[in-house]
Simulated assay, not measured.
Amino acid sequence: MKEIIKVEDVFFQYPDQKEYALKGISLDVKAGEWLAIVGHNGSGKSTLAKMLNGMHFPGEGTVEVDGVSLQEETVWDIRSKIGMVFQNPDNQFVGATVEDDVAFGLENHGIPYETMVTRVEEALKSVNMEDFLVQEPHHLSGGQKQRVAIAGVIALQPDIIILDEATSMLDPKGRKEVLETVRVLKEKENLTVISITHDLEEATKADRMVVLNQGTVFKEGSPEEIFLLEDELTKLGLDSPFTVKLAGALKREGIQLSKNYFTEEELVDVLCTSHFDK
């Protein structure tokens, strides 16, 4: 797969801080993959997310998005390729109704009215919110609000979606429906997804993970590879998914599993099957 984002030896320092927020970070993102960037508070993950969208510029090093180098004169070209979904959906709403809100970004980009109407309807349908066109956003549940926020991003037809702690304020049901919505859209539209999170349950949905610690890349690999580092992750302040913890406890009791299972349903199925096979 081709590289759609390339970060090379990037340093960044906030003006009011002595320490660098990012210290020589290098990573790449492949087109069409789901990359989870995880880390504790202060690890640099949100700073990196903002840099990918041109809200920050490297003090040293380079950032390229689809072959375009991040600079002040190219920032709008880069932002046209990336859609961001933030932590609190209420902070993203500007329209009086759901359809007004999804249309807002299209209006700012000068999209013709007829095209805009079609895109709004298609975007809301893609997140199963087409029945809420004239609903006021503040009447929606947390999960529904975040799906509308995703629809607003999808309507702009970006190549890349960045979820910046986008599920952290949701209850388990809302979190599950948002991540499932993103998964379906990724497969349907061949989108590149980057999720910035401290929640390792969310990271299990990714194809690949990058763990940040104190502004540096600590480890990267598949979820299976990263979750083998359970003790190291705990020392970094990251809590492993329940299924991974349970599998570790079973292993200590002499019950070996063939692989990591990231959903409770999968783990229950394999344990029941193993039990009945005996």
Rank of each mutant, 00 (worst) to 15 (best):
I161L: 01
A49C: 01
N213G: 10
K125F: 09
D101S: 10
D131H: 09
M1R: 11
L133T: 11
N41S: 11
E64Y: 07
F262I: 10
F132D: 05
A149C: 11
I25V: 15
M169P: 14
R147T: 14
Q13A: 09
P112E: 09
M209F: 00
E122V: 13
G54L: 04
L170I: 10
S69P: 06
L163K: 10
E165C: 06
V75Y: 00
H109K: 15
S195P: 01
V94N: 05
K278G: 14
L233I: 00
E107G: 06
H109R: 15
V182C: 05
D171A: 11
A36M: 07
L106H: 11
Q17A: 13
S195R: 01
M51L: 03
D231K: 09
A103D: 06
D207C: 03
G221R: 05
R147Q: 12
L35P: 02
V217L: 06
Y20L: 14
M169Q: 15
V217A: 13
D100G: 11
E19G: 01
K50Y: 04
V10I: 06
G237W: 02
V268Y: 08
L185Q: 02
E189S: 08
E224I: 00
Q214W: 12
G110Y: 07
E266M: 09
F12D: 11
F227M: 01
L185T: 05
D16T: 11
D269S: 15
G174I: 12
E232N: 03
F93P: 06
R119L: 10
E64S: 11
K125N: 10
I255C: 08
A247Q: 15
N41H: 08
T115N: 08
M55H: 00
M169R: 15
S69R: 14
G54F: 09
H138L: 13
M129P: 03
F11M: 15
V29F: 01
L35T: 08
I150S: 07
K50H: 02
K23H: 02
K23Y: 00
S69L: 10
E225F: 00
E187M: 05
T74H: 05
E130N: 10
A96H: 05
R119K: 13
G54K: 12
V85A: 09
G61P: 12
L246G: 08
G174L: 09
I160T: 12
H56W: 07
T181V: 04
L200A: 03
D101R: 08
S43R: 06
Q144L: 02
E253M: 10
L156S: 13
K219H: 05
V75S: 03
E60Q: 13
V148D: 07
T47C: 12
M1G: 14
P58H: 14
M51T: 10
K205A: 05
K235L: 02
V117G: 00
Q157M: 11
V153K: 15
M209Y: 03
R208S: 01
P172I: 07
L212V: 06
C272G: 14
E136T: 15
R147I: 09
Q214P: 06
I226W: 00
F276V: 03
L52S: 02
E121S: 04
A21E: 05
A123Y: 13
R79H: 04
V270Q: 13
M169W: 10
K145S: 08
N41K: 14
T263F: 06
T97Y: 10
N88M: 09
E3C: 04
P15W: 06
E64H: 08
V211L: 00
K23T: 07
V7G: 05
V217T: 02
Y113E: 12
